[in-house]
């Protein structure tokens, strides 16, 4: 993208830490669509996605001081905030809507199967669709569902070590599609 000339990543972060509004506008222009798409991949609903994206950018504005360049790229930090916010939202919504016996997998099939929103076709989810079902399911549970390895192991009735290995393998396969 040619706009990259306007700010280096370090320069952008420095301005953001000074609460520079034009820098924040630049950040929004260049990152909001990617973050919004990830959020939609997770929450599967546009209204909810709008709310979560709003919360995410307000959080970014307020918590930019917590970003440490040594630990990774800015986008990786932004992506984690967006993904965590979306997963928190989905978890709290599922909790509100939950029936006593709601199964882990039910919610996953609910979000990617029953409602069948276009959000499966965009962003990373679109790429994940191209993976074999075995990998697809693990990525849905861990990346889009936010479930821990232990939760997945217990729900899928497979050993924890196997869960770890398969998730790594699935993401490694995903990378090959990039």
């Amino acid at each position: 993208m040619s706009d990259a000339a306007k700010y280096t990543e370090n320069g952008l972060v420095a301005l953001l830490k000074q609460r520079d509004v034009p820098a924040f506008e630049y950040l929004y222009e260049h990152y909001s669509a990617a973050l919004y798409t990830v959020i939609l991949n997770i929450v599967d609903e546009k209204e909810a996605g709008n709310d979560v994206l709003q919360d995410v950018f307000v959080k970014i504005w307020r918590q930019i001081d917590q970003y440490n360049e040594q630990k990774g790229r800015l986008f990786t930090w932004l992506l984690n905030i967006a993904r965590n916010a979306a997963i928190d939202f989905k978890r709290s919504r599922q909790f509100r809507n939950s029936r006593q016996n709601l199964e882990l997998t039910d919610s996953v099939y609910y979000s990617t199967g029953v409602t069948q929103l276009d959000t499966d076709k965009i962003g990373l989810a679109g790429l994940v669709e191209k993976l074999p079902e075995e990998y697809r399911k693990l990525i849905r549970l861990s990346y889009f569902g936010g479930y821990t390895h232990e939760e997945i192991a217990s729900a899928e009735n497979i050993p924890l070590g196997t869960v770890k290995t398969r998730i790594r393998k699935a993401l490694s396969e995903l990378r090959k599609l990039m």
Binding site: A34, T37, G123, M178
Partner: peptide, 15 residues
């Protein structure tokens, strides 16, 4: 990180 960023910035939907 660079690869993921590039990937996630494609096939996006604008808010």
């Amino acid at each position: 990180e660079v690869m993921l960023e590039k990937q996630l910035k494609s096939n996006v939907q604008a808010p």
